[in-house]
Design a protein around this nucleic acid. Structure first.
Lengths: 185, 185
DNA sequence: CACCAAACAGACAGGTCTGTCTGGTGTCAA
DNA sequence: TTGACACCAGACAGACCTGTCTGTTTGGTG
């Protein structure tokens, strides 16, 4: 019977791991579960990723890449810097609400990996630095002299809305954050 | 030899659990480790708390109680509502920096317990609701008509600064948050 | 067609997890 | 003094964890 072609196992594992790690938490999901959900053997999982730690890093890198695509879509869809910045709030909210307010995968990973030197934390810093850089680049065009401070402040609002919406299990914090962001701009 | 008096085991376990759960994460710490660190047997731990889940809830309740004492101290030390609100930012920052920016114990627990119906999440909601209520009560005296919105906004700034300071491993986000809070007031 | 890489199936090792149980020891109060 | 109680010491069960191993089957390529 048509078994899957070689080389697909890695992608299937990554897809299953993404869903499970995000939904249940990283420490709470074992590699057996990931392999079973992916329809793949543990040997194939280890052949592709080497260890669970590396699979976790791959999971976060993949999510960062998909988020970057979202940012690119925003850049294409909106021309003005203010519109782009506000669209980031909408995109963030959409990602969180789509999965029942489970929170930011990178902040969750930060909670589960306390060591700041862990490779996981490097991916998190990379992701957040990229987001901050995008905001600052946009603001540089709109309000050059306030760009740095504004980018810091908008990051606080974004992250605050993210975690607060998880506790509250609804999108209301994002409305508060976006309204305040609009007045700051 | 002077063994400890009966009744002390519970307090010793709670103290050890608080330190370990907060530092390493809840799922990452086993009950054997907690019992060993407390200088107590597992039997005593289970005799006092019944299960790890209940110990986790006790840990968060205890931390909430200690935070409430901090809030009470702020109320005593400052008379004006604006001073009290800004002092909350300082207290939050002090708690995080004192433990190497490991983050808010309640938000970390939220990451580790995805089910919103979990007793752990109820403690988290209680804690955050109490904080929000304190801010709103203070603001009611300073700016009655804006109190509700302002309390929401300050919560976003507090939570945003908390998680961002963990990623960055420094207190800079709190300075940004406090400055913005001051201009909002 | 023959070969090889990559998948399969599934057992296995060694460790850790939560939770229980047995039996001994110390303390306090009646 | 005696009994209740809370603890100690440590083994134990059963599940789950990561990671490895043996051997087989398959699909794509030279």
């Amino acid at each position: 019977m048509g078994r899957t072609r070689p080389g697909d196992a890695g992608a299937k594992v990554l897809k299953a791991a993404s869903a499970l790690f995000y939904r249940d938490g990283i420490h709470a999901v074992g590699v057996d579960t990931v392999a079973a959900e992916a329809g793949v053997t543990k040997a194939a999982l280890y052949g592709n990723f080497g260890s669970k730690s590396r699979l976790v890093v791959a999971y976060l890198r993949d999510r960062d890449r998909r988020w970057q695509e979202e940012i690119d879509a925003i850049t294409i869809a909106h021309a003005g810097p203010r519109e782009r910045v506000l669209a980031v709030f909408d995109a963030y909210e959409a990602w969180l609400s789509a999965d029942g307010y489970r929170g930011c995968a990178f902040l969750n990973a930060t909670s589960e990996f306390p060591d700041p030197a862990d490779p996981v934390r490097e991916v998190v810093r990379h992701h957040k630095t990229a987001l901050h850089g995008y905001l600052r680049a946009q603001l540089q065009r709109a309000e050059p002299q306030r760009a740095d401070v504004l980018a810091d402040e908008l990051m606080l609002l974004l992250e605050g809305a993210a975690v607060t919406s998880v506790v509250a299990q609804n999108a209301q914090p994002f409305r508060t954050a976006k309204r305040l962001a609009r007045t700051l701009l």
